[in-house]
Design a protein around this nucleic acid. Structure first.
Lengths: 193, 193
DNA sequence: CGATTCTTTGAAAACAGTCAATCTGTGTGG
DNA sequence: CCACACAGATTGACTGTTTTCAAAGAATCG
């Protein structure tokens, strides 16, 4: 499975076989069954976590007892709670596998060491952070400016891989609307075309 | 006005007077009158921009012709469209001053040079990016999980400085609701307590 | 097959948006 | 100093959308 990560990394940076081997040695591969939790509310995220295959969901149970999907992650995505990772404080998120998945994990300590040893990895990390930040800005704009219908369409276009494999009520809580609304929206949209 | 930036920077990093002087020399100070635009839709953001004093607003006119406030910026905040800055593409945002303001500007080129010359500035930049990203994650969670009333209260608590000096319809578009809704919410809340 | 989970549907209620009119405060020019 | 214009805020009536609640219909899994 490390092969998947190696291919992914090489689409973004140039890296020698030796350096890649260092990264491999520092990594841990973890397999998750469907519905298996990867992190739980209260854990401190002292790891970097890459999804080699499968599908995960980051969510939180709100004060109202409702389940809010913060985001999904599929093949070749990363999953982190930056706040917990940066400040080493307990996370308020849960993460679970929505399908059998394989993740590759580095401890924060190991990852830091690797970034020192392999400068290009630090550059990669920075670029990744920048892309993530851009994506979050786009999502914020969509949340404040789009109707439920527009958000639904955007989501479907932007994450076709996610869309077709996760339960609808999770899509609903990702968009910030009720599952019934998404169900009706879907019906309306298929009827229209 | 550079003094304000100097104080700000020194609350975050340790930096010598010499390095600070380098940063000062590379900067441009710009004064804005109320309602004066700083950037306009179509501009490429080749600058880093620090608000020494005043209040700015980043917004976009949506496809529906409506005004969406992406965010505000007050004293000691930065204002950037990361997507435009990183990829050097035209921004789709406008920025205007909501009050007489002073901003300190560095060109991207100059800022890059400074980060090479002054390693601690690069660290600062990374920490800033991390904090900004964390803030955007919190806002996303709030947008998908809170009611209009909760968002209104959170905004008021989190940004008291902004809250009391910007027109209400801009607060409304920041929260993603209509100005009438915010007006009624406010009435309801003052009545209740 | 039976149990469980997910999705759909209907009806009612709550909520937010629109439109239009009015009110308020500010600042300008006479 | 007043009258007026203007922008922003509020309010009411109405409309449309979304949520909630409850029930029933698919789909999935052991």
């Amino acid at each position: 499975m490390f092969e998947i990560f190696a291919r992914y990394l090489r689409t973004h940076i140039e890296i020698s076989d030796d350096d890649l081997e260092l990264i491999r040695i520092g990594s841990i591969e973890k397999r998750l069954r469907k519905w298996q939790p990867l992190f739980q509310d209260g854990d401190v995220w002292l790891t970097n976590c890459f999804i080699a295959s499968g599908c995960l969901r980051i969510y939180r149970i709100g004060g109202d007892g409702k389940d809010h999907t913060f985001r999904f992650g599929v093949d070749n995505w990363w999953v982190t709670d930056v706040e917990s990772y940066n400040h080493e404080t307990p996370s308020r998120f849960d993460v679970e596998a929505l399908a059998a998945s394989t993740v590759i994990i580095w401890t924060k300590k190991k990852w830091m060491e690797l970034m020192v040893t392999i400068p290009v990895l630090r550059e990669f990390q920075e670029a990744l952070m920048a892309r993530s930040y851009e994506a979050s800005q786009r999502r914020i704009y969509s949340l404040i400016s789009s109707s439920a219908e527009e958000k639904y369409n955007e989501f479907q276009k932007t994450y076709p891989g996610v869309f077709n494999q996760v339960p609808l009520h999770m899509v609903a809580s990702y968009l910030g609307v009720s599952r019934e609304t998404v169900s009706r929206l879907r019906k309306e949209l298929t009827k229209r075309k």
